[in-house]
Design a protein around this nucleic acid. Structure first.
Length: 444
DNA sequence: TTGACTCAACATCCTTTGCTACAA
DNA sequence: TTGTAGGTTTCCATGTTGAGTCA
């Protein structure tokens, strides 16, 4: 019996005489040899180079006529070529606003095979679908956002792709992961694992993850094959920009509350033999806090210290001065906590967007910002990613995490090239002599 | 179709010090 | 004496999102 490959529930099963060099593991339940579907391309090339004759029933895909008349910029062409040269696998790390979508569309046109595009939010899903419908003359399916319709070109959320991957894993020859850093999530990585698509493209502005899970992504999608930083494109395809740090002092009351809380935390560390040389020690502390009351107290104290430094009164005053200085500019204000968003919204009469803001209200606010009815908005972490935010030229970061990704995304909100060629400004307001100075240092 | 709700998943959460028991 | 591991089956809090359900 000749060797036969078939797709079952997110895995490739090999029937017949199988060379032992193949990366397959025996499945005791039904005595078959299996590999996760993402290794399909690898299996094929192993069989081909061993000269083994086999029957391939994994994918049976129609050829699609996808033509496009996009004119790629130089760096977009280079990125596409680099991906092509790496057996059509890999990640492109490019800044927000550099036209990642365009590159993916060009790749789809070049391959002409059924393609799945996976994106993290419904908002991005809608943008992708619109883009593909405009560009190609074929129906575009959608999984997620209330629809479950499969077509040769389909866009999906990570959540829906996760739910459907085992039964649609053999329907596509190409998969595009937008904001591919999400694929490192414990559950989401199964999406890439259960798909057989040999061609894989990941898009992101910040590939590396603090938890190291980008290594998993490299295995499932491929390594970074092309990358550009904001500074490579600033002044050319993106606006020039400037970062300004403003330090503010805590009030006396804030200072003493901060020192006391931070002290509780540091005292615990000194007696707890936690080394804190890496982020994993924080996880350890969290674990302990489940059973050790002192660990719990330390963690809550740390939480309190963070809230004090991130929401300091002087930041509100600093914002007042900045809003005054930039009366004629388009300003987005970012914070880490929703409470502060609403406080600022009341005091300065700013339209606010947080996780609690419903979809229709959010759309209305963004529309008015786009039209110019509003020239400033305040938000927590909502507009960090995956939302089509109208352009601004001034960003004020009142508080944020130490995440490089969050910082890059916030900066990206003001980098669209300006009509008058003007430069964008990002202010970071930081509480002096607190841990926030380190946090701000870490993110950039 | 919309809105309000619940639930689960994901992300961030961080510091400048050196412990203790055990096996080789 | 020296070098090394220490640990299972997670999870203090806050914020955001998608899926699913129900009215």
């Amino acid at each position: 019996m000749t060797l036969r490959l078939r797709f079952v529930d997110g895995t490739i099963i090999a029937d017949g005489a199988v060379p032992d060099t193949l990366p397959l593991t025996p499945d005791d339940r039904d005595r078959t040899l299996r590999a996760p579907a993402h290794r399909y391309a690898e299996l094929r090339s192993a069989l081909d180079s061993a000269g083994v004759d086999y029957e391939d029933r994994v994918l049976d895909l129609p050829a699609l006529d996808l033509t496009t008349d996009y004119d790629l910029r130089n760096y977009q062409r280079e990125a596409l070529d680099a991906w092509d040269a790496n057996d059509r696998r890999g990640v492109l790390e490019l800044p927000t606003g550099s036209g990642k979508t365009v590159i993916a569309v060009a790749a789809m046109a070049a391959l002409g095979t059924p393609t799945l595009v996976v994106a993290p939010t419904v908002d991005l899903l809608t943008q992708w679908r619109r883009e593909l419908e405009t560009e190609f003359d074929v129906p575009v399916g959608q999984l997620g956002g209330g629809e479950q319709r499969l077509e040769d070109l389909t866009v999906s959320t990570y959540d829906s792709a996760y739910l459907r991957a085992d039964d649609i894993g053999n329907r596509f020859g190409f998969v595009v992961f937008d904001e591919v850093h999400h694929l490192g999530g414990e559950g989401y990585r199964d999406v890439a694992r259960l798909l057989a698509a040999p061609a894989r493209l990941g898009l992101t502005a910040t590939f590396e993850r603090p938890d190291g899970a980008h290594e998993v992504i490299e295995e499932l999608v491929g390594p970074v094959v092309y990358d550009l930083a904001v500074d490579d494109l600033a002044g050319d395809h993106l606006a020039d920009y400037e970062l300004r740090r403003i330090e503010v002092d805590l009030t006396d009351a804030e200072r003493s509350a901060y020192e006391e809380a931070q002290g509780t935390f540091v005292d615990y560390l000194k007696t707890s033999n936690l080394s804190f040389s890496s982020g994993s020690d924080y996880q350890e502390l969290v674990k302990r806090s489940g059973s050790d009351p002192r660990a719990r107290e330390a963690l809550l104290a740390k939480q309190e210290a963070r809230e004090i430094m991130m929401n300091a009164d002087a930041k509100v005053d600093a914002l007042a001065r900045l809003l005054d200085r930039h009366r004629d500019d388009r300003v987005i204000v970012f914070t880490a906590h929703t409470d502060l968003v609403y406080r600022l919204s009341e005091r300065f009469l700013l339209p606010a967007i947080t996780g609690e803001t419903g979809a229709s209200e959010r759309r209305a606010i963004l529309d008015r910002f786009r039209q110019g009815t509003y020239s400033r908005i305040v938000t927590a972490n909502v507009l960090d990613e995956g939302v089509d935010v109208p352009d601004a030229n001034v960003a004020v970061v009142l508080s944020g995490s130490g995440s490089e990704r969050e910082f890059t995304q916030r900066l990206g909100r003001i980098l669209r090239p300006k009509a008058d060629g003007g430069r964008a400004l990002l202010y970071e307001v930081v509480s002096a002599e607190t841990a926030e100075e380190r946090v701000a240092e870490r993110r950039r």
